[in-house]
Design a protein around this nucleic acid. Structure first.
Length: 661
DNA sequence: CGTCTCCAGGTTTTT
DNA sequence: CCTGGAGACG
């Protein structure tokens, strides 16, 4: 398919500032990839190009497509998420700020743990503290979205202590991955210059979802040639600091900007697009645009009102089976979208019952699973001894006799000496007079020796990281520990077992990937914290599976058939979100808009009459957004048996034909 | 002093 | 269902 006029212009315009307003399904990804290919064809070196995306998935996909189009190795082309780009900068230059190169990256769980520990040390009552809320507050403070006010002042000391803790442990959190590079650029202009000189052509995808900080980071290194691509109607990350007013800021900062609008939708039927437009037109705060489709009107949108979430799940499962037969659809043609991860369970059960292969994106990230975190914690401690949070996680896992009292004693030294736990442990071991029992001391010595030994093995260089990690898992008897821990639940044990195997094979394929230059431990750890579970999935597998994911995770994807499950008031829009502020209702509507526009041919929306929430069953009413879809586009689905006889016979006939031929 | 067992709570969306 | 924490037990 040829590029249309606007697309072509966007691809060919590589000098100067460019703002591409790309409506849903307007071939945005194609434009971006073709634009990079065009640059390469014009002789621009890979090393001068930087493309920033929002998710790892998008980055990976872009890289793949460019590889396919050019058939070249892309060794020097930088395509990454903002966060991964931040890591890259920090690995090079974080020492200017006083961290060491082997810093740890704390995820949400680690950070919450740190907050809890710190609160305990400060003598704050931990019970009654809503760690989740506090973490949220701290994050918003750090990214400059909120400021200290009388209402939250009480936590300022805790905040400062947590920050001091991060530095002491040689660790950073997710927000630091953006704010610390910015700080480096402000304080050390010569470092900034280095990056400005290298990257001459910058591109930002999903621009509407960049935060102010990310915008500043981009602007700090951008010179002239900057292209941003976005759609204000698809801005769904404001809770993370995303601000689509960046688009206005961009226009102000780059006054000579050329604006290109992509308004032809190549993805969806006219029916689906009309529904999406009907919904989004209720938003007041948006750039007006006229998306159109030349794909024909297609089939009506089907709305179904199941009894409860189990009914809903079996409706989806049965409909998938039925469409496979009647329309020859493949499992990979289906996308099932939900608002919250907790909703996966019922649907997954139905899929298992119907034998429907599926993959789930998001959810508890693979790397958040306890068994995986344990192993990673070892690796982190081995690479960064001062990493207290990870030390605490594994110092007695598997059990090695180091309990609460011993840890308290170590911790007391750390507090008084302002040093890490690792340093305290070594001091305690070396001290001739120590408050520790001989037994405790011996256990600690053994632990320190274990870590030391593994450190020299794992950092010894050369290939074979996965082998070394496997050896470590054996050395600490982790598998035995799992067996003992879950002896009452063999299934769980086996599952965790498999997860560790999965991790090891993940390391293996990473280090054998030709795109991986540095297959050392540090490089692996830096990479891994930013990954989520679906980034582990192998590509081939996904094509033959139904895709179950949150609406947020579905952004940028498309499916021939889409189910939007749980379109109920309180979920879409989410009650929690509405609670937080009035502006959120427009964001929730955009979220629904994103969900609708994922569909190519056929869209199903279900809204349960009842849904189990925690322990109780609550009555539900349909999402108010459903009323915003023009009535004439919708047909109400009548409940019926799984597959009608006619369809089954039809299917059998088709199968027979296939055999005869 | 460390380990085991039982119980409550669940946290919107992601890097 | 699964995790983390508190309190009993050895």
């Amino acid at each position: 398919m040829r590029l249309n006029e606007q697309q072509d212009k966007a691809v060919k315009t590589i000098e100067g500032a460019l703002l591409i307003i790309a409506g849903a399904g307007s071939g945005k990804t194609r434009v971006i990839t073709n634009r990079i290919v065009h640059m390469l064809e014009m002789g621009i070196p890979q090393s001068q190009i930087l493309a920033l995306t929002f998710t790892n998935k998008a980055a990976k996909e872009m890289q793949e497509r460019i590889r396919e189009l050019t058939g070249k190795k892309l060794q020097n082309l930088s395509i990454s998420t903002f966060h991964a780009f931040g890591v890259k900068i920090l690995r090079q230059d974080i020492e200017t700020l006083g961290w060491r190169e082997n810093f740890s990256i704390y995820d949400e769980v680690d950070k919450n743990q740190l907050i809890k520990e710190t609160a305990r040390e400060l003598g704050l009552k931990t019970e009654g503290l809503d760690i989740y809320k506090i973490a949220n507050l701290f994050s918003n403070i750090k990214i400059g979205r909120w400021t200290w006010e009388a209402s939250n002042d009480a936590y300022k000391q805790l905040y400062d202590e947590v920050e001091a803790g991060l530095k002491l442990y040689n660790a950073v959190d997710f927000d630091d991955l953006i704010t610390l590079p910015l700080r480096i650029f402000q304080e050390f202009p010569e470092v900034k210059e280095k990056y400005r000189e290298r990257y001459k052509y910058i591109m930002v995808d999903e621009f509407q979802d960049t935060s102010i900080q990310q915008y500043h980071l981009m602007k700090a290194i951008a010179d002239q040639n900057v292209a941003v691509v976005g759609d204000d109607d698809q801005s769904i990350y404001s809770w993370r600091g995303a601000n689509y007013e960046n688009i206005l800021m961009f226009e102000r900062d780059f006054p000579n900007v050329m604006e290109i609008r992509l308004e032809q939708n190549y993805r969806s039927t006219e029916t689906i697009l009309a529904a999406a437009n009907g919904v989004i037109s209720h938003n007041t705060n948006r750039k007006d645009k006229s998306l159109w489709s030349g794909n024909g009107s297609g089939k009506p949108i089907e709305v179904y009102m199941p009894e409860d979430e189990h009914d809903e799940a079996s409706f989806i499962a049965e409909m998938i089976q039925s469409l496979r037969m009647s329309e020859g659809r493949k499992f990979g043609d289906f996308g099932v979208l939900i608002r919250a991860n907790t909703m996966t369970r019922a649907i997954e059960e139905a899929f298992l019952a119907e034998n429907i292969p599926h993959s789930i994106s998001g959810g508890t990230s693979f790397f958040q699973r306890k068994e995986i975190k344990d192993i990673i914690s070892y690796l982190r401690l081995i690479s960064n001894h001062d990493d207290d949070i990870n030390l605490l996680r594994i110092i007695n896992t598997p059990r090695r006799g180091i309990g609460k009292k011993t840890i308290e004693q170590i911790s007391a030294i750390s507090t008084s000496q302002k040093c890490s736990l690792w340093t305290s442990i070594n001091a305690l071991i070396a001290a001739s007079e120590s408050p520790l029992s001989d037994r405790a001391k011996a256990d600690l010595v053994e632990f320190v020796e274990l870590i030391g030994k593994q450190r020299s093995l794992l950092l010894s260089g050369g290939k074979g990281l996965s082998k070394k990690v496997r050896a470590m898992v054996d050395e600490i008897n982790y598998m035995d520990y799992l067996m003992a821990e879950y002896q009452k639940n063999e299934k769980a044990a086996r599952f965790k077992f498999l997860n560790i195997e999965h991790l090891l094979s993940g390391i293996d394929s990473w280090e054998n990937n030709p795109d991986t230059f540095d297959s050392g431990l540090y490089a692996y750890l830096n990479r891994i914290t930013l990954l989520s579970r679906d980034d582990m999935e192998d590509e081939e597998g996904l094509l033959g599976k139904v895709n179950l994911m949150t609406i947020h995770a579905s952004k940028g994807l498309e499916f021939p058939v889409v189910f939007i499950a749980g379109a109920e008031d309180g979920l879409i829009p989410h009650a929690r979100s509405v609670e937080e502020g009035d502006g959120n209702i427009e964001e929730e509507r955009r979220l629904f808009y994103v969900a609708i526009t994922r569909a190519q041919d056929k869209l199903f929306i279900s809204s349960c009459r009842r849904r189990r929430k925690m322990q109780t069953v609550v009555e539900c009413t349909p999402s108010p957004f459903l009323d915003e879809i023009p009535e004439n586009l919708v047909s109400y689905h009548e409940p019926k048996g799984a597959i009608s006889d006619a369809e089954a016979i039809d299917f059998l006939a088709k199968m027979k034909n296939r055999f005869v031929m």
